[in-house]
């Protein structure tokens, strides 16, 4: 019962949250919501032990395909967002053929190269990708009403609610996947790949599956972004954003489902809200870099290790927590 109440309180807080914020903070909140999905999908990929540097470009694949589908073919926006995710997953399956011949460091570099090639292709070919300037005037999400609430998508608050629902559904699906036998197999592929292979698990197929699912959700987050800001260009999906995603995941910790999300939320709040309020505009990258270094030096298991300390103390009084198979 108390757990149920906590969920209700959290939901109410999330609904009330934008009303206490300034307009620019509301916009940051929308980006944060989208980034939560991005980093949560990235974690699914890291479950199989692979760290990609192409994830943000895959997000861009979702953004570009959804934008082009609405612009060139007049596809209804929510449908095109879904198709953006499907497209990103398909591209991931194609990329898996060259990339999954590599592991570890080579996969990291290979995924970077593959992503960068895709990004440069957007830059090089003005038709249909719009070249360096990208695509402008992407159709916004059409307004609609659900009786008690009128969605007006020029308002960040409305888009926050919409994106929030989409992201919540996606997170739920990602959570279910992780807890399913398939998700447990992902863990096995990471920690016991030889044993998994010997037990008849097709390791390559499961790695591809994780890559495709993660990329599909990254694509949806990209589509959410494209139809919110209205313009996308190749530089929006460059290595800088990828570095942020990597940092969120590592600072938050990847042993739990909530770790990367925690990292994303905490670092975004520090970066966008605290440092901005303090008037340290120019020093933001410096402080951000210092936080990265300090957290990897002194908190190698991520922010989640702090949370775990608290929950484990509580859990020792009640039922033992089920920890992920590691």
């Amino acid at each position: 019962m108390p757990k149920f109440l906590i969920w209700i309180a959290a939901l109410a807080a999330l609904i009330a949250l934008p009303h206490g914020l300034s307009f620019s903070q509301q916009e940051i909140l929308v980006f944060l919501t989208i980034n939560v999905l991005l980093v949560a999908s990235y974690r699914l990929l890291t479950l199989t032990g692979e760290w990609s540097l192409g994830h943000v470009v895959i997000m861009g694949v979702g953004a570009y395909s959804s934008a082009l589908l609405t612009k060139k073919l007049g596809v209804y926006v929510p449908v095109s967002m879904l198709l953006g995710g499907v497209f990103a997953a398909l591209i991931a399956v194609l990329l898996s053929f060259p990339l999954f011949r590599m592991k570890g460091f080579y996969f990291l570099i290979g995924s970077f190269a593959a992503g960068e090639i895709i990004r440069l292709l957007w830059k090089r070919f003005r038709d249909p990708f719009g070249g360096a300037k990208g695509i402008k005037g992407i159709d916004p999400m059409p307004d609609f009403s659900v009786g008690f609430y009128q969605f007006d998508f020029f308002e960040p608050t409305s888009y926050y609610y919409f994106a929030g629902v989409v992201v919540a559904v996606c997170l739920w699906i990602l959570w279910r996947i992780e807890k399913s036998p398939v998700g447990l197999t992902f863990h096995a592929v990471h920690w016991q790949d030889k044993l998994a292979q010997a037990s008849g698990v097709n390791v390559r197929a499961y790695r591809t599956l994780a890559f495709a699912i993660a990329s599909g959700f990254a694509g949806i987050s990209g589509a959410l972004l494209a139809h919110y800001v209205g313009t996308i260009n190749p530089n929006a999906f460059d290595i800088d954003l990828m570095v942020f995603v990597l940092t969120w995941a590592i600072v938050g910790g990847t042993a739990t489902f909530y770790g990367p999300i925690l990292g994303c939320v905490v670092l975004t709040v520090i970066n966008e809200v605290v440092l901005r309020e303090l008037g340290l505009e120019q020093m933001r990258p410096l402080i951000y870099g210092a936080i990265m270094i300090l957290s990897i030096l002194f908190l190698p298991n991520g922010l989640e290790s702090i949370v775990q300390k608290f929950t484990q103390r509580r859990a020792s009084n009640g039922a033992p927590e089920r920890s992920p198979a590691e």
């Binding site: 410096l286 210092a290 990897i296």
Partner: peptide, 10 residues
């Protein structure tokens, strides 16, 4: 890797 990215930003 992460630390060198942090150093790069600084």
């Amino acid at each position: 890797l992460v630390a060198s990215i942090g150093f790069l930003m600084i």
